[in-house]
Design a protein around this nucleic acid. Structure first.
Length: 305
DNA sequence: AACCTTCCCTGATGGC
DNA sequence: TGCCATCAGGGAAGGT
């Protein structure tokens, strides 16, 4: 569930919070999320300080002096920062075992696979119910764009996100456009929710083959992907079930969804019933009127937000 | 090579 | 009340 906007919201929440603070204890339990020996992880983290937090697509990158802690949240991964000393809001409560924390923040339980404790008493928790997430420890050499991230496509919020490359990567492709959007080597960070939303905003039917989509429509899609992601970040991400930010708060972008999860409800633009189908084994939501299979004329564009 | 399907996993939900 | 089937989907692996 965490896609680019959710991961970015977590990153923004942690920025300026944990950099430069010494790690004094690490707790972890055997779990397949660890792509590094836990002993090794312990050894590297103990006494270390986080120097910065970056993001590439759905990957979070915690920069240490010689290593990088790289975390992918998968489906249900949660990263929360607990501060037992803070009590400046009614949203806080005193949990019997974990002390003071925000209302929605999960206390450590059988799904909490990693706890990083800082010298100032705060802790960073990694919790993942379905363990689709992954935790890596990489050297600076390995973390380079052409090594570990070699199969990751354009990052929408970097200069590399260009129309020319976008159009270039579309050339000759016969896949359904929805599948291409989900492909992380095409554009990094787009998942099921924002793929559906971007296609709706572009007025493109998710089943259309990329090579049958007109160039000006591909251009709309290029712009829509970024717009949709930007808006979701402004709203703190989309919480449908498990997603919470680093403070344990839910996102509010679920209120803004135009098609995802709205099957059976009227289209907010034309009133037609939103349909749900399956593409690449992913629930796919669209409006058959605003997103006609045959495409639109440039002058017919119905949605231009 | 490109594209599609299957699988992993757990909790919520609905039918009986 | 409890039991079982179904659904959710990111990404890797396997199949066509």
């Amino acid at each position: 569930m965490p896609e680019l906007p959710e991961v970015e919201t977590i990153r923004l929440g942690l920025m300026g919070q944990i950099e430069g603070v010494k790690i004094v204890d690490v707790e972890s339990h055997p779990c397949r999320v660890f792509q590094v020996e836990r002993d090794c992880l312990n050894q590297v983290l103990l006494g270390a300080k986080i120097r910065g937090i970056d993001r590439l697509g759905k990957f979070l990158i915690f920069r240490l002096s010689e290593h990088n802690l790289v975390i992918h949240l998968g489906m249900t991964g949660q990263l929360t920062l607990r501060d037992p000393s803070r009590c400046d809001s009614p949203q806080f409560f005193r949990h019997p075992t974990t002390g003071l924390q925000r209302v929605r923040q999960h206390p450590p339980d059988q799904h909490t696979h990693l706890q990083i404790h800082f010298e100032d008493g705060r802790s960073l928790f990694y919790r993942d119910m379905r363990t689709f997430g992954k935790i890596y420890l990489l050297t600076h050499e390995e973390v380079r764009r052409d090594v570990f991230f070699s199969r990751v496509g354009m990052e929408p919020f970097s200069k590399e996100y260009s129309l020319a490359v976008f159009l270039g990567n579309c050339r000759g492709r016969k896949v359904r456009v929805k599948s291409l959007l989900l492909d992380q080597s095409f554009v990094a960070g787009v998942g099921n929710i924002y793929a559906d939303e971007a296609l709706f905003v572009s007025g493109i039917h998710p089943c259309r083959r990329v090579n049958r989509i007109r160039i000006f429509e591909r251009e709309w899609l290029f712009q829509s992907v970024k717009k949709v992601l930007e808006k979701a970040i402004r709203f703190g991400g989309t919480t449908l079930r498990d997603y919470i930010d680093s403070d344990g708060r839910q996102g509010t972008h679920q209120e803004e969804l135009r098609v995802y999860g709205r099957e059976g409800s009227p289209c907010l633009v034309c009133g037609a019933e939103i349909k749900k189908i399956s593409i690449s084994n992913r629930g796919t939501h669209f409006c058959a009127v605003c997103q006609p299979r045959a495409g639109q004329k440039k002058s017919d564009r119905r949605i231009c937000e």
